[in-house]
Nucleic acid binder design. Structure first.
Lengths: 140, 140
DNA sequence: TATTGTTATACTCTATAACTATA
DNA sequence: TATAGTTATAGAGTATAACAATA
């Protein structure tokens, strides 16, 4: 079911010219502007060279920019552009609509109950809020 | 959270030398022995040439076999081998243990409540029981 | 001609390892 | 030497299209 919800979300945000990988990264940068590629790599649990490609995408789409840090010219401070901020706002709206669509079968009480149950599981499983495990390589 | 559960399941079944794609296909063949590659492709929503690779894997691992149909020699009837049947049994046990692990935070009443809520969503969303959308190409 | 399965090919995603610039 | 980022390369997964065997 997670896969279904993810696929539907992907459909929705594609209207913004954005793919799921973009969405997660964009949100991380929006939440904590100025962060470096290294910090993203660590939090996502992926290799730094992969962040290069992800950030390249976002930059090519004009949603973020790499700003040189004059104090330490080795790293970049990543920031949303005006366009990126706009897309981020759109995405929040899409996120709400998406949740509403997925939960259409449930009334408000049931949604609250579902959320509480899932949160209990997430906490017990030690999941980091806000980081989608989909970035990490799948074990095989 | 679906991604987390899927990753943990992948870990568990890797002990059997099986990956998630194998697991789904193996179960489909176990449930309906003798089915053709075409029928799998249709139900999974993937292209027939992909089923060739998936079935090749399973056959290489000795879990299934392609049997020629003497009536219509164009298609294969897919069947589990003895080893495949054994792995399928193991997988069922792993599935139960997995569910139990994921739901460790909930008592029996809560699990029943969660299951009911999720089933309501799945039904409303028109999800085919037993087919994981992960086989289908992700829209971009 | 139509259907089942296969092969050839190309493209995307991702990791590893070597490399550059800066500290 | 160590760190941030990049490039080159290789491998896996997957679709498209052409193909062979059978009907």
């Amino acid at each position: 079911m997670g896969a279904h919800a993810a696929a539907r979300f992907a459909e929705r945000i594609s209207e913004l010219g954005v793919i799921p990988a973009d969405a997660g990264l964009l949100r991380m940068i929006a939440t904590q502007p100025g962060r470096s590629q290294q910090s993203l790599a660590e939090e996502l649990g992926v290799v730094p060279s992969r962040v290069v490609a992800l950030v390249d995408n976002l930059e090519r789409k004009g949603l973020i920019e790499r700003r040189r840090n004059p104090q330490d010219r080795r790293n970049y401070a990543l920031h949303l552009t005006t366009e990126g901020t706009h897309v981020m706002t759109e995405m929040r709206g899409i996120g709400s609509a998406h949740e509403d669509d997925i939960c259409a079968a449930l009334d408000d009480t049931q949604r609250a109950r579902l959320a509480a149950l899932l949160e209990a599981i997430a906490a017990q499983q030690g999941l980091t809020p806000g980081v989608h495990p989909g970035y990490q390589q799948r074990p095989r």
